[in-house]
Design a protein around this nucleic acid. Structure first.
Lengths: 196, 196
DNA sequence: CCGTATCAGATACACTTGTATCATAACTGG
DNA sequence: CCAGTTATGATACAAGTGTATCTGATACGG
């Protein structure tokens, strides 16, 4: 072998360039040349490590997906000692762009969002099968002591979808994060019964 | 004047071509030539009626926006005689892609969504200023007899955002519309007190 | 009627795109 | 040490892009 280069790391460097461009100029601005420039490598290298543009986009999304999932899991496990309500709040707050990194990831996901409709491969990475988050939230709810009449599945449906949507609102500055957090806490109160 | 042509209608025909392309092939596939072909006119005409591509995209979105707003208003007024809860359910169900036309509009909006981030003019049409829907829902809630402890603003925040999000889930076939409607009714029950 | 404003077709231009090709380093296994 | 795989650079190419231009119809006001 010649000068062994860490292909995976190199690929990640290029993928991160894709993220940056997608996040602040949109997916349309992601061209092979732009990526090369942003990553500080030659066009040929981008071709070399990701044969085709389609591959580049798909793999870049996959990397991001793994990355954020990993990060979310770590954060959640870090507070697994709390009450059910505490963990649940952590899981949902994790969806909000409260720190720059999460905001960045959200921007990239947004950029990919619409394209995933016309591209089955992207869609596969994007909405990977089922509704794991709703399942998790439902499961957490079932473990807690709930106010009378609360149905975990229905609560989970609206909570996950609603907080996700409010994430975008925060991103677009249509909502302040404080208001969103207050909304979240209010609903947790309604679910877990009157706050003590 | 020469053969006076209804410019507004012509523009609408072309704009609708934009919608169709955006809805099923994505905004990236919207080129001046594609639009011309889809609308059955010459490239020159597209240029003629919308000087520039940017204008075309912005106006097409504005037309759609007016169109759906109009349609929503009609539908809501058609059921204004119902109870507060009934009207509220109508408003929120209006967000769901329960009929082909609404689904189509939702697809187009999705296509525009991410581009609105890197294009201020699109953003202006898209998230036109404030949170009118949340305001409306809040206002409606304040008129109803609510279960104890219910805070209209917080309920409105999650309802609007949540139902919007669930719309996308239905579009992506991650949720069945029946489940979403059940979720909606469940939350209306929780808000308006036990169902009678 | 006929010039002139409106409407529309054909085509050209400069540019960017993704991908392919040609060439050449760099390193290592034999 | 050299043959050959791996890694990288420079450049070429065809296709598609938005926009501009040049031309010709059409129909009414004077």
């Amino acid at each position: 072998m010649p000068q062994r280069v860490d292909h995976d790391q190199r690929r990640r460097v290029i993928a991160e360039a894709v993220w940056r461009i997608a996040a602040d100029r949109g997916l349309d601005s992601v061209s092979m040349r732009e990526v090369a420039t942003e990553a500080g490598v030659s066009l040929r290298l981008v071709q070399y490590y990701f044969e085709t543009k389609h591959n580049l986009l798909v793999l870049a999304l996959r990397y991001l997906h793994d990355h954020t999932e990993q990060r979310a899991r770590e954060r959640i496990e870090a507070q697994a000692d709390q009450s059910v309500r505490g963990v649940l709040r952590g899981v949902l707050a994790e969806l909000l762009p409260l720190d720059p990194e999460t905001e960045f990831a959200l921007r990239v996901h947004t950029a990919y969002f619409s394209r995933s409709h016309s591209d089955p491969e992207l869609a596969k990475v994007f909405l990977h099968g089922d509704t794991p988050l709703e399942d998790l939230v439902t499961h957490l709810l079932e473990q807690g002591e709930l106010a009378p009449g609360v149905q975990p599945r229905f609560e989970a449906n609206l909570l996950v979808s609603g907080i996700t949507g409010l994430s975008f609102d925060v991103l677009h500055e249509r909502q302040r994060s404080a208001e969103v957090l207050a909304t979240l806490d209010y609903h947790l109160d309604r679910i877990f019964g009157p706050a003590r």
